[in-house]
């Protein structure tokens, strides 16, 4: 599958280091993304008012200011803004499976809370999120149902959230 086909199938991959695209506004970027997907799915394009309504709803969900939409994708964003931008994109694309790759890297506590809050708000029993992290910190805000330890590309241990405390105490050494 191509990257765009995976996206159309409902998979969202957040980047640890999101790429900046000068000259392309977030709004235009997301309009293009939604229009490509709807076309691929044989659906009619969203009307401008439908797009605006969706945008407004999702912005509220991740507590994003409207000025943000006019900015170029990730250009001049702080670490926290980039991650928040990723969560906003995730909200707009409404994926069934989200893969958040080290979303907590480079975030201060406030930014971490905002991002985690966004992830929690978007989560429903019908959706799944895979959160990849090295630290417990993020998991204080996003409480996992399952914890897997991945080593050399394989899952070597699976347990409930109690595994986080165990790792925090003993490190990864014993696994």
């Amino acid at each position: 599958m191509t990257p765009e086909e995976r996206s159309w199938a409902g998979i969202f991959l957040s980047f640890q280091y999101p790429i900046d695209i000068p000259g392309v506004s977030i709004s235009n970027f997301l309009k293009t993304a939604l229009s490509c997907r709807r076309k691929a799915q044989g659906l009619p394009e969203l009307t401008p008012s439908e797009f605006l309504a969706l945008r407004k709803e999702k912005m509220a969900l991740v507590q994003m200011k409207p000025e943000f939409l006019k900015r170029d994708v990730n250009v001049g964003f702080s670490g926290g803004e980039k991650k928040r931008g990723e969560i906003f994109q995730m909200a707009m694309l409404d994926p069934d499976l989200s893969i958040l790759d080290e979303t907590d890297s480079g975030l201060d506590v406030d930014a971490l809370r905002i991002v985690a809050d966004g992830v929690n708000r978007l989560h429903t029993p019908q959706k799944a999120s895979i959160v990849i992290t090295h630290y417990q910190r993020l998991l204080d805000y996003i409480v996992p149902d399952f914890v897997h330890i991945l080593k050399d590309g394989r899952i070597i241990k699976t347990a409930g959230r109690e595994l986080v405390a165990e790792i925090e105490e003993k490190g990864y050494e014993g696994f």
Binding site: E4, F29, A33
Partner: peptide, 9 residues
């Protein structure tokens, strides 16, 4: 790649 991962052809 970044754009495609968001569904843009």
């Amino acid at each position: 790649f970044y754009m495609r991962s968001r569904g843009i052809t």
